[in-house]
């Protein structure tokens, strides 16, 4: 195993972003381990196990469908699938970002004892949420077929939608995680904001019910585009329009660059803070 000798010099500073990304790649096995740990421990002691991940969207759908279709009576065809397609994307986003914050703070005990590239934690949190998203797509697609929504070739773009949303969640997650390290009450504050954010996103209602002079405000919300990128192929059976792609990709890229830069520029400080 005589490979080239590892060498560390605290005085040698390249870009912290490049250093951290390289370290992350070296520790890719740890990301895999963290993701599998999070999945395993989540299901280990519950008897239904992975069934919960499958069941959860169905139950959510039932609740939301019953509540909102009887309450608001939006005249939407296949309302269950309408809600669920948007809600699945939302659920991934909110889980991924809050898990990223929580996992980092909870892992303090670990990275105060042993060196670990800090990027591993948020990336693994997003990874675990991503697996849950993929699992929950199964019941979603089944429900779609079952309730009569016809699958179209547009479904083939779904992986790209997922990649963009994951990139956005990671970028924002990194930013929020940096904040969470410095401010203990960041997480509860963010959870309140998430509730607000969900209702500001056309998930359970169509954007058309918003007065036209206010719709621009709702279009400032990045999640509007990501929900659209999910809903178009699943619910509408069409390819999302190019504006949605462009704006979604723009948000994802910006969040990723800003988030990663801010997060990595503070990595040397985390062990002192958490």
């Amino acid at each position: 195993m005589q490979t080239h000798e590892e060498f560390y010099d605290s005085a040698r500073h390249r870009s912290p972003l490049i250093d951290e990304v390289q370290a992350l790649m070296r520790y890719n096995n740890l990301v895999v381990q963290f993701v599998s740990r999070s999945l395993k421990t989540r299901y280990k002691r519950s008897t239904l196990g992975v069934v919960w991940t499958l069941l959860n969207p169905i139950l959510t759908m039932l609740v939301l469908t019953v509540v909102f279709s009887s309450l608001f009576r939006f005249n939407i065809e296949h309302y269950a699938v309408y809600i669920l397609s948007g809600h699945t994307a939302w659920l991934f986003f909110s889980n991924a970002t809050s898990a990223s914050m929580g996992d980092m703070v909870l892992s303090g005990g670990l990275f105060q004892r042993i060196y670990v590239p800090k990027l591993v934690f948020p990336v693994a949190s997003i990874g675990a949420s991503l697996i849950n998203l993929l699992i929950s797509l199964i019941p979603l697609l089944l429900i779609a077929v079952f309730t009569g929504v016809r699958p179209t070739p547009a479904l083939l773009v779904l992986p790209l939608s997922i990649v963009l949303l994951a990139a956005f969640a990671l970028g924002l997650g990194l930013l929020l995680t940096t904040a969470a390290v410095y401010f203990a009450d960041m997480l509860p504050v963010y959870e309140v904001l998430l509730t607000l954010w969900m209702y500001a996103t056309p998930i359970i209602y169509p954007i058309e019910i918003i007065p036209p002079n206010l719709q621009w405000l709702f279009r400032l919300n990045p999640l509007y585009y990501f929900v659209r990128l999910f809903r178009a192929p699943i619910y509408d059976g069409v390819f999302p329009e190019w504006q949605a792609w462009l704006i979604g990709a723009g948000f994802a890229l910006a969040a990723l660059v800003v988030g990663a830069t801010v997060f990595t520029s503070h990595t040397n400080d985390y062990a002192y803070r958490v």
């Binding site: 000798e5 590892e6 060498f7 010099d9 042993i114 060196y115």
Partner: peptide, 19 residues
């Protein structure tokens, strides 16, 4: 162990560290 980054000064390590 590279857990704490020095506020000042310089740390150089050659090779794999096992804590």
């Amino acid at each position: 162990a590279r857990v704490l980054y020095p506020t000042r000064g310089r740390v150089v390590l050659r090779g794999r560290v096992a804590p």
